[in-house]
Amino acid sequence: MKTSILILGGITEAYTLAETLAARADLRVVNSLAGRTSNPRLPVGETRIGGFGGVAGLTAYLREQSIHAVIDATHPFASRMGWNAFAGCCATAVPLLRLERPGWTAVPGDCWEPVSDWEQAVATLRAGGSRRVLLAVGRQELAPFVGLDDIWFLIRAVTPPDPMPPLSAFHLLLSRGPFDLESERALLADQMIDTIVCKNSGGEATTAKLVAARERGIRVIMHERPQRPALPAAATVEDAVRWLDEALVRARAG
Rank of each mutant, 00 (worst) to 15 (best):
T159M: 00
P178F: 09
G51M: 12
R28Y: 08
D149Y: 00
G57D: 05
G82M: 12
L96M: 10
W112S: 05
A25Q: 14
G50P: 04
V137Q: 03
A78R: 05
K2A: 10
L42D: 07
R132W: 04
G254T: 11
E19S: 13
P163I: 09
R250Y: 10
R185M: 07
L188D: 06
M222Q: 07
V158S: 15
I221Y: 06
A73F: 01
V241A: 14
Q227N: 01
L173Y: 13
V55S: 07
R131V: 06
T159V: 04
K199M: 05
D110Y: 01
R219N: 01
N200K: 06
R24V: 08
D110T: 01
C111Q: 15
C111S: 11
T124H: 10
G138M: 12
E182D: 15
I221D: 06
M164A: 14
V133D: 11
R242A: 14
K209I: 08
N84A: 07
E119P: 00
D72W: 02
E113L: 12
P163F: 11
A87H: 11
L17P: 03
V146L: 08
R98V: 03
A14E: 06
W112C: 06
E238Y: 02
L142I: 12
W243P: 05
E204Q: 13
Q65L: 10
Y61W: 15
W152G: 15
T74K: 04
D149E: 13
R101E: 08
V55N: 11
V146T: 12
P229Y: 12
L244Y: 08
R36F: 11
P165R: 13
E246H: 14
C89K: 05
L62F: 02
V122P: 04
L154F: 11
R41T: 09
T92N: 01
R132G: 03
W104V: 08
H171E: 15
V115P: 05
G9C: 13
D180C: 08
R80F: 13
G54Q: 06
R132D: 09
C90D: 14
T105C: 04
P229L: 12
V137A: 07
S38H: 12
R252M: 14
L99M: 08
L99D: 07
W118K: 03
S116I: 07
F145L: 12
S79M: 01
T124D: 07
V197L: 14
V137G: 04
L154Y: 12
R139N: 07
P226G: 05
S38C: 06
A235K: 11
L142F: 09
S79F: 10
G203R: 11
G109K: 05
V237W: 06
D26A: 14
L6P: 01
P95H: 10
Q227F: 00
